[in-house]
Design a protein around this nucleic acid. Structure first.
Lengths: 179, 179
DNA sequence: CGTCTTCCATACATAAGTGTATGTTGAGTT
DNA sequence: AACTCAACATACACTTATGTATGGAAGACG
């Protein structure tokens, strides 16, 4: 099987989501793909370089998902519900693994921090459009986002889901105009 | 230096907080303590047994902290603020590391899930004491707790702190009586 | 058809880890 | 003083990992 850089990154992203960052070894990845490390070391200078490329790849991947999946169409309240809904349901494994990875790799942490900042800003803009008091937007948007992340980082998140009504109620609470 | 089981667990808990679960190797721990693996394999049957003992140790450690640190004295609103404040400030490194660990070890995940359930229940009781509508308590207590965890799992949490006023405002929002 | 580049395999040196079997020491105990 | 046993050291076999050097195959191309 003739591979290119991107194939390695795709496969690694999958392995990362399933087995965690401990699976990011040239050897085990090669075994999983069905080639030897010769391929790996042709496409990437070293493990470090590979890791850097992988987290870059993830950043693009996840940013694009945010833009195409949530923003754009719909009223602010709908977008907000979609944002929370999406953050609480899909892509949990990969997000968990990346965040776990970020706790032991500063480069990864930087990328994650940038992604977080963007998503929090996105939530803040929506709250602003809903006429939430200015001095509360910062705290509420952060809290909202943290809750979404926190749920992902709880073991067995699928057993810890909020119903659609719960989500609606919470979003309404956070969109409240009065302090 | 003459060691016992507990010394190993204490040292490991520290290493876990600082370097993540990747540091939980008999060899590297032994090197850090200044003994050989002979000691490790005398006190513990295997790495697996050691891991199980360690996560048990953490469970007791962290449960005790909740009980003695938050519950008991003070009005419900104060306790709630203290709960959030504590969850958002101290012990971040260890909590992060354990949660990270839980993503790749089911035994650890089970322990963490039990701890989470207890803390969420604690928050729910406080909200109930504050006359929050019954059908909202479940969602709000979870959301509150998730936010605390989420903030911990965000890179550089110390750069992402809410002010005391923000915490007060948020707690007030979550303690609202009307839907 | 031959050549050049791309992609992968093989082989070697080195490091870090687990587990086990067996030797060694030092503090109590009788 | 001799004994015992808990606590640690040492040595061996095995596995998995990185990185590098070099050889080989398969396409692209003039």
């Amino acid at each position: 099987m003739r591979l290119e850089r991107r194939d390695w990154l795709e496969f690694a992203l999958n392995a990362l989501a399933i087995k965690g960052y401990g699976a990011l070894k040239a050897q085990s990845l090669a075994k999983g793909i069905g080639v030897t490390r010769g391929s790996f070391y042709w496409h990437f200078e070293s493990l470090e370089a590979f890791n850097a490329a992988l987290i870059d790849y993830w950043s693009e991947h996840t940013t694009e998902r945010l833009i195409t999946g949530v923003s754009g169409a719909g009223a602010p309240l709908e977008q907000l519900e979609r944002l929370i809904g999406q953050a609480m349901r899909s892509g949990a494994d990969l997000e968990r693994a990346v965040r776990s990875w970020a706790t032991v790799d500063e480069g990864v942490a930087n990328h994650v921090a940038r992604v977080d900042a963007r998503r929090i800003q996105f939530a803040a803009d929506l709250l602003a459009a809903l006429d939430v008091p200015k001095d509360e937007i910062g705290a509420r948007s952060k809290m909202l986002y943290w809750a979404a992340i926190g749920r992902l980082m709880i073991p067995f998140p699928h057993e810890n889901t909020l119903s659609d009504e719960d989500v609606t109620a919470l979003v309404a609470l956070f969109a409240k105009r009065d302090a």
